[in-house]
Design a protein around this nucleic acid. Sequence first.
DNA 1: ATGCATCGCGCG
DNA 2: AAAGCGCGCGATGCAT
Length: 655
Amino acid sequence: MTKPFDKIVTIDFETRWDSKDYTLSKMTTEEYIRDTRFKAFGACVHEFGTDSPTNWVGGEGLREYFSGVNWGRTAVLAHNAQFDVSIMEWVYGARPAFIFDTLSMGRALRGVEVGNSLAKLASDFGLPAKGQAVHSTNGLAVITEDIEAALADYCAHDVYLCEEIFKRFSEGYPTSELRLIDMTLKMYTRPQLELDSKMLIKALTEEGELREGLLQRLGIQEAELASNPKFADVLQKLGVTPPTKVSKTTGKETLALAKNDALFQALLNGEREDVALLCEARLKVKSTTERTRAQRFLDISQRGKLPVPLSYYGALSGRWTAAKGSAINMQNLKRGSFLRKAIMAPEGYQLVVGDLSQIEPRVLAWLSDYHEMLDIFRADGDPYAAFGAQMFNIPGLTKVSHPDLRQSAKSALLGCGYGLGWASFASQLLVGFLGAPPVRYDKAFAKALGVDQAYAQKFIDWEDNVVKMLEIPHTCTQQELLTHCLAAKRIIDIYRATAHPVATFWDMCSQLIEDSLYGGRVYEYKCLTFSKERIELPNGMSLLYPDLKRTKDDKGRSQWVYGPKATKLYAGKLTNNVTQAVARIVMTDGMLRVSKKYPVVGTVHDEQIVLVPDAEVSEAKPWVLGQMTLEPKYLPGIPLAADGGAHRRYGEAKQ
DNA sequence: ATGCATCGCGCG
DNA sequence: AAAGCGCGCGATGCAT
């Protein structure tokens, strides 16, 4: 592939800020740059890889500078390029051909938890420390020549640091991943999506009126509903004992007033109509996320198009996360919500949304040589429905006949692949069961579950853990609960017996944690190379497990932990990590192919959002799905499938 | 006041 | 112990 640029310009802006009310620590990048107060004091620029001097371009000279460069053939390099390139594009109309970003590269190469600020990177690489001069501009709208000179020095040093770090990072960095960084940043700096402000206003108004009316009818303040202790008081006054539960983490008693707490659900669906109404109102009042987000979307819509705030390599597995401080997360918008519907392609375009069907179970089946499962996928079967039929003893269960049960089976099957245990599974299924005293796990209960003495002793060893999971209150009797747990255990047992290759894969993972990730023995398995504290992936990137070591948990049992937060690692989790990481590469391969023809304007893990002119939509849709499912050479024989749709509105594209 | 941890819930 | 996993954010409670 020929390079889309002839030279790389490193850039760093210095801009006006005020720690009181105009600062990136209190505002999003989008808000800050689009604010009327925005002002660039200047920028340092340097042509990367040349002896040319680093030039400070003062604020008044910036417009002339940017119009004097052929950005169509020029790439830009910055640390946190989202900021600098947004200024270039939004303020000066300069559209660089390609974007390099040392912050993005740092996350991928060093991990997300270590910190990848320019100061930290300089220190870790033994480079001259980042300067401090910028503090003197706090609150200033104009700067003196002296300050400007100091700023220019400081800025030039940042440019130097960025280049030095880039030299170190770019050694061997896959071109495909550089293209993904460029793609991700352009989703933000070159926004295409529009927000339907009328729809957002309407939804906000209607919701507000509904809420106000409800509060008035009940004669209650919002705070009395929203706060846990205050709501408990309200219940007490009505002669209702506020329900409690034992916290899973602290072990302390706490109010069980969350939406999915069984006892809260009992009140919500109970016979006391006054109490039920209050509970309903509480849910309405507490669902603030949707309101806050709608308001944020509305605010953005009044400033311009929607910069999609995604963070390349935000997750261990290489998945994208929401960009920190962006205040909105495009990856967890409620399905079917008006927020999704308010996101639109510009006039004359549609959004082709394609997703990789069941990509994780497909990759797991391929990695573990689970041929029976691969054959189900090859025959275009529905493994979730098949598992659901086993789970619920409903032969012939389908997505159409039992959509909810199939959804439950889907979640169970995915969990099972990563080591989901029966107790946890049982408690998952119990969510929603109503009222009744907590059931205690004891020896007799274990025996009733049909586990032998040694197995029962193991459960008792993790008693606190299991007790908490089973201490979910129910309306069902002890006997019903027992039956329920037996059913849960039966399903888990069925899975582990039938998905034997997956269990064998767990075995191998356990061994590799010990021998390779810890012991350093290099081991190649299919498209993965296990070695000391890392697993190399088929795209040249790696899963990182820095400082992996064996520790003891609070019960004195041996366990593996890694990283600054002592994150636990064990077979089921490693299975998840490699599966998710490989699935992400299948996904990005498709994105890279699609992006050669159409702009990819967003991604949500197994889904890509592609901008297509109206006239090309019917052709583009199958083409996109086809590009997503080309067999990767590192996964020979894997059956892939993709599904998708097209609409001007994001929320209407997939049916 | 401010930071930090936990919970609950949204997505995959 | 074969323990589902990967995220971010708002509300809340507790410590500083």
